[in-house]
Each structure stands twice: as C-alpha cells, then as structure tokens.
C-alpha cells in the first residue's frame, strides 16, 4: 500500500516537472480544457441515434436474410447467401451457406465471409467456408451483439479470383 502511494507521489512529481517544461506544454494543457467536454458531449450526441431502434445504416440494407436467401451478381458470377436458423439473431450459432453460379474460384480456392457492421469496427470476424456440394460452401459463425443498439450488419463474401460483394442486412438482438 505504502509502496503504491510512493509511486503515486513520484508520478505526480513527474507530471509536475513535465508541467514546468515550457509554453508548449502549457498550450497543450490548455487544449485539454475542452477535450474532456468534447469526448463526453460527442458520446451524448451520438447516444440517442444509437439507442433509437433505427439507424442511418438501415438505408444501406440490400438483403432480407430473415425471409430467405439473398442473391447478388459479381463479375459474371451469381452469389447466393443463406443464413440459418431464421430469423437471424445475434449471439447464436449460425450456418452460413454460399452457392455460386457462373464463374467459380480457380484452383479449389475456398470462398470466405467477413462479418462486420457498416461504419463501426467490430474486430475481425471471419467465417471460413468448406465445400458442401457442387459450387456450394458452408461454414459456422456468430454475429455478435453491439451494445449501441445498432442492428445493421454486413457479410462481405469473398470469392477468390472473382471479387467480393457485401450483403447488408438486419439482425435481431
């Protein structure tokens, strides 16, 4: 306990010396006056939008995975994505199935899916797909829940040598 208090005092001394460092440091510290207010205010301003059931990203939705499969065209290939069980809920194990028509990936390269939220970095959430029939692939994954309340998610399907496409959809929390 005493040791920690000692180091605490030492760190105060360090910052005190740092404070005496010159005008640049003083100017820097003056910038800090509004900094905390900006952080807290920005959080408050953003919060009502996050809390509201809807969000601006809902306009980007191009797929209703709750109802069934979604299909998109990509460079001579048709990609169909199905997610089960339906309706698609967060925080549960999901089966992602991708079916291709037209141009297929070369050399037995496997397609994969990256799950994320438009406009928000949720960390890498990769679903590796395995062959499940002719031009069909499947893999298991989980869509995590965002405490902000936003429910718009995207599945970026990458077909090696063909390209990638985004399925943007609503998820139930």
């Amino acid at each position: 306990m005493l040791k920690i208090r000692g180091s605490y005092c030492s760190s105060r001394g360090f910052f005190k010396r740092e404070k005496e460092g010159g005008t640049a440091a003083v100017k820097m510290k003056r910038l800090m006056i509004p900094f905390s207010a900006v952080i807290l205010t920005a959080f408050l301003l953003a919060a009502p939008g996050r809390i509201a059931a809807g969000d601006k990203y809902q306009e980007m939705i191009n797929c209703d995975l709750h109802q069934g499969a979604c299909t998109q065209n990509l460079a001579g290939s048709t990609i169909t994505l199905t997610v089960t069980p339906r309706p698609v809920k967060a925080m549960q194990d999901l089966l992602f199935q991708v079916t291709l028509a037209g141009k297929l990936p070369s050399n037995n390269k496997l397609p994969y899916i990256d799950l994320g939220m438009p406009g928000m970095n949720m960390g890498p959430n990769h679903v590796q797909l395995k062959p499940a029939g002719k031009a069909a692939y499947e893999g298991r994954g989980v869509i995590v829940r965002c405490p902000s309340g936003r429910r718009t998610w995207q599945a970026t399907v990458t077909i090696p040598d063909v390209g990638q496409t985004k399925f943007i959809f609503d998820v139930i929390y």
Binding site: F15, F35, S36, A37, L40, F43, A47
Partner: peptide, 30 residues
C-alpha cells in the same frame, strides 16, 4: 482529459459533472 492543473477552475468541474451525469444516464438507458 486529466485536469490536475485545473484545480482552481470550478466551472470546468461543474460542466464536467453535468456531462458525467448525462453520460451515466445514457449508460443506464442502454
């Protein structure tokens, strides 16, 4: 956001306090 050098500026603490109360309220609602 460390305000150690602001100890005489009471108004900053008042503003910060209001914002903190609102932020706390948002957390509870969420």
């Amino acid at each position: 956001a460390g305000l150690g050098w602001l100890k005489s500026r009471a108004i900053i603490y008042k503003v910060g306090a209001v914002l903190m109360i609102l932020v706390g309220f948002v957390f509870v609602i969420k």
